[in-house]
Nucleic acid binder design. Structure first.
Lengths: 358, 358
DNA sequence: CGATTTCATGTAATCCATTACATTGCATTG
DNA sequence: CAATGCAATGTAATGGATTACATGAAATCG
């Protein structure tokens, strides 16, 4: 353990660093490893990066020293030199939203398969925070980003953007996106309510700033059209995706004396709020009112009654997004594309035939 | 826009870089900014880092150029030189667990107040992944880490660990931790059940590898002792914190024919599972069985009935953890400490007086 | 007015690893 | 045996910023 014997000519200039022989493991550099293993820094680097080009014996010797001293190469120096970090940042508006976790998992799977690490940034939908994380790419601390909001921060590197949009999408067709066909999925949900006999179907929309919410509303309207039902503006309201928003929406409808036998919600949390508000007002779900959500978050099957909802292929979205990002990183030339997946309606207990009463 | 006129002597050696006058915004360096603003790199750096030491006019000129060309300093180079990144990594076992999101928020608040950014790493309780993220500190890509698991990865930098443990804690008293008094909190929950008249109180424990789970069980046992109730081993089982584990536990108790009028669960998700399993077996909560959870996640107030649970001061835990980490980063000399906060029982609808029947 | 500060700026060392290119020694070949 | 090729290793340039130290000019002082 006393093997700290180093070449005398080593370091002439950095004073305090010289007095190093204390107990605690210090931070090492290639130089030191090289000196101790009696090779050049190049050989140390090679032994670590491309072991096959180094002779068996020196490689062994170097690895021993590295292990013994607990050397970890300085990633900053390496990344500076190689101009890549093998790190990507995934931006999500809200980690409390269980919808994203499965998407993240898909992202991480593909990332790891390809030697990338994923770091998550929670933006709380704040533009400055989105931009702050995006700047990490401009500052070369990450290779690319996957953003799960409908705003794509500006990160022009050499005129191209190493950005993929997941779950959401933006009009700009320079940006690659992965998302589902929200019009079709919402339409299918409403179609199903129609087949159950419902005609007065309320809709709790999401923020109209988000294209996918506009699409969901569009799907709702088209389904009503197909069924020859006139959309009643009084049965449409907007929420912010929170449980509370779902409760408020129902409270509003009821206060206005609207009559409806079904509610379609733009996400599951608002649906959970809706169920709760309905129940607390003495209405039974689904006997009096059917409720459909969107996303199929993990809790959806544990509400009472269990929630009928549109299941997004969350894992696939994540995998596909990361796959596209890697493509983009490997070859900046690939044209951006929008990948549209499909989603399935999962029927559980929160929906039922329209009861004759209503 | 044609202002690319640079000093003739600039760059002699890097060939392809010279042919740069194309349209798309290239990546800039201090050198280029300096050349264009007709100052030295030092002045550019100063204008950006400590504007007050640069004269009004040059500062203005430099900022103009920086803005016009969209220059972002290469953070790798800067961090390499300054040996700090102002980045911290927060490790959480599972982003799908809503418990952590509020803790994260506390961490981020304090981080931003102090000029740090937070990146999240999901470990899925895998040791290799924990270690991989921790290695970012060793590799100098982050300044420190806050981990929310009961395992603290090895990251010795100069013999000290820039690590703080939040929510959980480890025995090793070289590691700073922030957590609640789990023995007391669990005790209070069980005490409450006792005051409601319950004597046959089942317990769904968490993984015994985690000290806080051991503490919660300890709190349960002590509370029973205080009430002169003998703990019945058949009424204790272990789960993995998932909703499903809560369901399985109840199914097990019922299959064994155990009789109990209350269940205390080591976290809310298992409590949600327990409620669901009880309900599906025709038992009413709280009329037949009272259920108490732990954590007070966001969904706890939306179960039916709303869950009585132990509310951890999640935001405070996060804030305190980040505060301690910053302390540690500013002065490696500060002795590690364990900070124990207290938690409150929140009574909602899932608990009630023991019904005479049972 | 010469000496001394003070202010603004420039020069060059530095952080640490990667890697193009150079060198050395040895085996192979005609 | 000289010429050639290959394998293993070394030397030094490089990436892009920060900053200690040096320099020059202007301001202040006696």
């Amino acid at each position: 353990m006393s093997g700290d014997g180093s070449k005398p000519k080593r370091q002439r200039n950095n004073g305090e660093r010289a007095a190093a022989a204390s107990q605690p493991a210090r931070v090492r550099t290639v130089k030191e490893i090289a000196a101790i293993a009696k090779v050049s820094v190049a050989t140390v680097s090679r032994a670590l990066q491309r072991p096959e080009v180094v002779s068996e014996t020196t490689r062994q010797r170097i690895h021993d020293v590295v292990k013994r001293l607990g050397y970890t190469p300085n990633a900053l120096a390496r990344n500076l030199r190689t101009a890549r970090t093998r790190l990507i940042v995934a931006l999500l508006p809200d980690i409390a939203n269980p919808f994203f976790s499965e998407v993240i998992r898909g992202i991480e799977q593909v990332a790891h398969e390809n030697g990338y690490s994923v770091l998550l940034g929670e933006t709380q939908s704040s533009l400055v925070r989105e931009q702050a994380y995006a700047d990490m790419v401009a500052a070369r601390q990450a290779d690319g980003i996957i953003t799960m909001s409908h705003r794509v921060p500006a990160v022009p590197i050499d005129g191209r953007l190493p950005v993929v949009n997941a779950c959401e999408y933006v009009k700009d067709n320079k940006i690659s996106s992965v998302y589902i066909d929200n019009v079709a999925a919402a339409g299918a949900a409403v179609d199903y309510l129609v087949t159950l006999g419902h005609r007065d179907i309320a809709f709790i929309a999401g923020p109209s700033s988000s294209p996918i919410c506009v699409d969901r509303e569009q799907g709702y309207r088209l389904a009503l059209q197909r069924a020859n039902i006139a959309a009643d503006p009084a049965l449409i309201t907007v929420g912010d995706f929170s449980i509370e928003a779902g409760e408020r929406a129902i409270d509003l409808f009821l206060a206005q004396g609207q009559s409806f036998s079904a509610v379609f919600c733009s996400n599951d949390e608002m649906a959970i709020g809706a169920i709760r508000a309905l129940t607390s007002k003495g209405l039974r779900v689904p006997d009096d009112v059917s409720v459909v959500g969107f996303d199929d978050i993990r809790f959806a099957r544990y509400t009472s009654p269990p929630l009928t909802t549109v299941a997004q292929p969350k894992n696939a979205i994540g995998r596909e997004a990361m796959t596209m990002l890697i493509e983009l990183l490997n070859d900046p030339g690939v044209p951006p594309r929008k990948r549209v997946l499909s989603a399935d309606l999962v029927v559980r207990g929160s929906t039922g035939l329209r009861s004759p009463g209503r």
